[in-house]
Design a protein around this nucleic acid. Structure first.
Lengths: 259, 259
DNA sequence: AGGCGCTCGTGAACGCGTGCACAAATCGTG
DNA sequence: CACGATTTGTGCACGCGTTCACGAGCGCCT
């Protein structure tokens, strides 16, 4: 979940306590015209697995849009995103699908809808903590802008690094965290520090009001319930591949062959 | 995994699709004495979700071992790995658990077993293609050695980069791929190129005999069935966090209202 | 207008993964 | 040796996620 999927520490269910409340009713029983002028209530209440796939659909849609396509069938889009078409349709159905039967989906409309659901309209500011090897690479990665984010600030604890300019930003000392997070309205942070420093950084981030963390440090972070953490560990990914590699090699040594 | 896994995997999830072949037969019905001197049959046929967690257990175990611990209870280890203790026990039970009831697990023994199952004993050689921003960071990351891998070769298509020395390795041109993969016995490769080059690189890797790929390029790779691919996409991880952030904010903002 | 082909939307079945709760096994102690 | 304190191993039930298969709507062509 999956990258590898990161597990939520305490509350297994990501859904907040508030009971199903009033988002069940559409509000408009007549359900006259679909979206368009309508403000459209938020929170279609998506399954986690669907949320994890929406970004992939979005990326594929952008490729299609750049190619000049204006409508896609579920089959096309599914192939471009590397998933099953039925799964794709079900995923899209969760967000009040605007597909047209017999035709397909309007690319532009679908892009808007997914970006809206993911909250990408506001081009979120992200803080990056740890300007080491990996941190510098992340800061220099230019692909974020087109995908709804921008690195708003860089932090490090090492005084010799403070003041360095990377990708047009100057590295600030971690003590300035609270101030910058507040002024830049940062809600998402990336931790790219060594493992031994990660928990302290996470604590500081949480204290500043950051509620989503992407953790590249190879360690488990302990955070309050309302904070989301996703973890990316390169070595773990390689080890998973190693397992499959190991299995393959011990398998080819056996009798039956491949198709 | 990846990924991707993403699966992926799931994690978010990028689980390698694999048809269930006939790997069921254990071969040793009597299985007299446990491990120890015995060569121990391979392939306990683990669930993917378990495989994705084993590396996390392994990391936690190494931390415990460095701390001097020689036995751990499932509860301790589970907490260190950030999972449920029942889940941990079930996971470990798949690999002929050597836990002792009333005591716990032998740390060293468990490390050996997991490393063996994951195929980490042979310190696998990994090729890294694309020595750009991210590629250089990955090449410079020193943490691989202690986790069962070493970067054996760096490749790039840009002639101006060929010959550069990064982390003690000199960058080779991608045309040398086949030769190096063969001599270094490389089965796992990392793609850190721009998206538009990734598919071509993947094809070249597959042609050389590489059967596991970790893909950092934001695109879907098409590979033969016997090749495992895990994907890591930083922007996707951020977008998933963005969704949760978006949900949180629209939830705290209005108890019952529409725009 | 009517029929036909295409594609979305979704009900239902299936399988995997998770977590509970308890029996089995082991160690330490009197 | 017997008993109690632990901790593993696992049967079982539940819920989520995936997939199939098909009905429902839409556009096009005659």
């Amino acid at each position: 979940m999956s990258q590898q999927r990161s597990e939520r520490p305490a509350g297994s269910d990501s859904r907040p306590a508030r009971s199903a409340a009033g988002l069940s009713a559409d509000g408009s029983p007549g359900h006259g015209l679909p979206e368009r002028g309508a403000p459209a209530s938020e929170l279609p209440d998506l399954p986690e697995a669907t949320v994890a796939r929406l970004p992939e659909y979005l990326r594929a849609l952008h490729v299609l849009a750049d190619g000049g396509g204006d409508v896609v069938s579920s089959e096309e889009l599914a192939q471009a995103a590397g998933v099953n078409s039925a799964k794709l349709r079900k995923d899209l159905s969760y967000l009040r699908s605007n597909g047209t039967r017999g035709v397909g989906y309007d690319v532009g409309q679908l892009i808007d809808k997914i970006e809206h659901v993911l909250g990408l309209n506001q081009h979120r500011a992200v803080a990056l903590v740890g300007v080491g090897n990996l941190g510098q690479a992340l800061a220099g990665y230019g692909g974020f802008g087109s995908r709804g984010f921008h690195i708003a600030a860089l932090f490090d604890a090492d005084p010799t690094r403070v003041g360095d300019r990377i990708a047009g930003l100057s590295v600030r000392h971690i003590d300035e965290l609270a101030e910058v997070v507040a002024t830049e309205h940062i809600a998402i942070a990336v931790i790219a520090t060594p493992a031994h420093a990660a928990q302290a950084v996470a604590d500081a981030l949480v204290d500043c009001g950051v509620t989503s963390i992407l953790n590249f440090a190879p360690c488990v972070l302990s955070v309050p319930e309302n904070v989301d953490v996703r973890k990316v560990d390169l070595a773990i990914e390689l080890q998973i591949l190693s397992f499959h590699e190991h299995r393959k090699s011990t398998l080819t040594a056996l009798p039956e062959a491949i198709s």
